[in-house]
Amino acid sequence: MLDTTPLMDAVTRFADRLRAAPQSRLQKGAAAEGLALARELATRAQRIEEPGREPRRMPDAGMFAVADQLVVAGRDLALALTDRDGLGQAVDLVEQAHRRAGV
């Protein structure tokens, strides 16, 4: 079984920062960055779990729900991953998005 702790740690750090961010920071792009990442992680999980099926798009539940959406998508991907390459790519995606969000 693949140890996905690095992915979940990165997702949790970013989600915690989004939860603690002021509304003004969320409105200036941090929430959009978090939602884009959550959607990408969810898409990757769906492609692993249901190959050949068009992935469903995660809805925009609002800037105050983005952190929770990110955690759910990260956990889904962590459960679906089977290889270290995919894990490393996912961790990199999270870290890059976290930096871009500026939180």
Rank of each mutant, 00 (worst) to 15 (best):
L87Q: 03
A101G: 11
G74I: 02
L77H: 02
H98E: 15
A36P: 05
A101M: 01
D92L: 12
T5R: 15
E40W: 04
V91S: 08
L26N: 07
A65M: 12
P51E: 01
L18K: 09
R53V: 09
Q89M: 05
R44G: 12
M8Q: 12
D3M: 07
M58D: 03
R47G: 05
K28H: 08
M63A: 08
E49Y: 00
V72P: 00
L77D: 02
G88L: 11
L87T: 05
G88P: 07
G74N: 12
G34Q: 12
T4F: 01
L18S: 07
G62D: 12
V94Y: 04
R84W: 05
R25F: 02
I48S: 03
L77P: 05
G52Q: 02
A45W: 00
P59L: 07
A21W: 06
F14L: 15
A73Y: 08
M58H: 02
R44K: 13
G29H: 04
Q69Y: 10
G74H: 09
A31M: 08
G88T: 13
L37W: 05
D83S: 09
G88W: 08
R13W: 03
M63Q: 13
L77E: 00
L18G: 04
E54P: 00
L70Y: 07
F14I: 09
A90G: 04
T5M: 08
S24D: 12
R39I: 01
G52S: 05
V66L: 10
L35R: 12
R25C: 06
Q89H: 14
T5H: 08
G34A: 14
D68G: 15
E33A: 14
V103N: 09
L7D: 06
R75C: 03
D60E: 12
M63S: 08
A65K: 14
A32D: 15
Q89V: 07
G102A: 09
E95L: 15
T82H: 09
G52Y: 01
A38C: 00
L41E: 03
H98I: 05
L2K: 01
Q69W: 05
K28C: 01
R57F: 09
R19T: 10
